[in-house]
Design a protein around this nucleic acid. Structure first.
Lengths: 219, 219
DNA sequence: GTTCAAGAAATTTGATCAAATTATTGAGGT
DNA sequence: ACCTCAATAATTTGATCAAATTTCTTGAAC
């Protein structure tokens, strides 16, 4: 309602809110997403909600079921393979590119975010962990100056988020991967290849957790 | 207006039409895309048009300029590098995966599409070439049974399309890459690696054409 | 008297909402 | 088992409001 918030349009806010609900696991895989439901839940009008749903469908975060229904996609083995391939191709590349642009200030910022990740793990606060972990990765990726590839990574995280949340809820937060220490050490040393490898390992661990849960039918 | 077309909602049709306009180069890089303009050009309502624009923005086919305006993005050297990296990673992989699922009927279909490509090149019909070339690639890719990766490829083509059109208009259609013969031969031989290599070469040639034009300031 | 610039009006375009229309689903009756 | 009908939700339109850009005007300086 301020001068600040007045400038940013409702459909952007609505998009961001729905996106975060998906990304941080507030919506379970398979959950139905209805326009009317969001209109009352988010207190927004119909048009902004429609647009948010369309955008997120285009990004793969939501799935149109043909008959006018939309839902959070359920992860399948095939989808996981594809997402894993894309993530393991794109994200290490982004980390490597980011390495060339890292400044001491940025490394400091990443260390502070990693501290938040640790704190969330110690407290077992899963939403906080998911949010901080996401922030760590994308703070790094955005330094790559490669917005096209960052967009692709974002899309993959949106497809991955809901399942990761389910896995976290099962295993507890302390079984979670935190390869960030390795990554930070490589950053400080200016070791691009080492950073790339650390990120690669971090991703692979997350993917393996989800794959395991999937094979056991827990998702 | 039939029972057929009645089932498919206006916003889908509108999306498809606008997408094709971008993909087949009917909109130049940098062109402004206005809601009201499309409302009158496409004869659709405001909401369907808005949704089409949002979807295509989310896919990277359109670019929001901050001040409520939307336009077709202009290709830059940095963007081209990113798109090239993604395409050369994803699309050969899709071709390789598709190789495992190819049937004689599908190969026949691809041969027929390739004949359309050749015909368009001989006639110098650039829109027809772009459309047939697109159809060839995605007919193949869809056989991969990897919808997530196909979505990513689609997004890359949307970013690439407008620039390719400009290059075609400059060089004429006969300077265009057609590595499809190689690809089809590999398909008939059941040679997945050969197919992958042929597609890789085809993409690389297209990327090089655009890069050249970009360096010469022709885009 | 001409030119340039600042500011205000007008026009264009985007954002949002509310109402009317249409499709789908599921229940109840034949 | 099939058909009909009611309920629910999505689609679409048109109206209204807000923002941004362009154009026009006005005033000052040269």
């Amino acid at each position: 309602m301020d001068a600040e918030s007045r400038k940013i349009p409702t459909h952007e806010v609505t998009y961001a809110r729905l996106r975060d609900m998906i990304l941080y696991g507030h919506l379970e895989p398979g959950a139905a997403v209805t326009i009317q439901g969001l209109v009352s839940d988010l207190g927004a009008g119909m048009t902004p909600v429609r647009e948010a749903i369309r955008r997120l469908s285009a990004e793969g975060a939501l799935e149109a079921q043909g008959n006018r229904r939309v839902s959070v996609p359920k992860m399948t083995a095939g989808m996981l393979d594809q997402v894993a391939f894309a993530r393991l191709t794109i994200e290490p590349k982004l980390a490597e590119m980011a390495a060339a642009n890292l400044t001491p200030a940025l490394i400091l910022r990443l260390e502070s975010i990693d501290a938040q990740v640790d704190r969330a793990i110690r407290k077992g606060d899963i939403p906080a962990y998911l949010e901080a972990n996401h922030a760590f990765h994308f703070c790094l990726y955005e330094a790559s100056d490669a917005p096209v590839l960052v967009d692709m990574a974002r899309s993959m995280w949106l497809r991955f988020g809901p399942s990761l949340r389910v896995v976290c809820a099962q295993h507890g937060a302390d079984a979670l991967p935190d390869q960030h220490g390795q990554a930070l050490a490589a950053m400080r040393a200016g070791d691009a290849a080492g950073l790339k490898a650390a990120i690669e390992l971090d991703l692979a661990q997350g993917v393996d957790q989800v794959r395991l849960a999937l094979e056991q039918g827990n998702i």
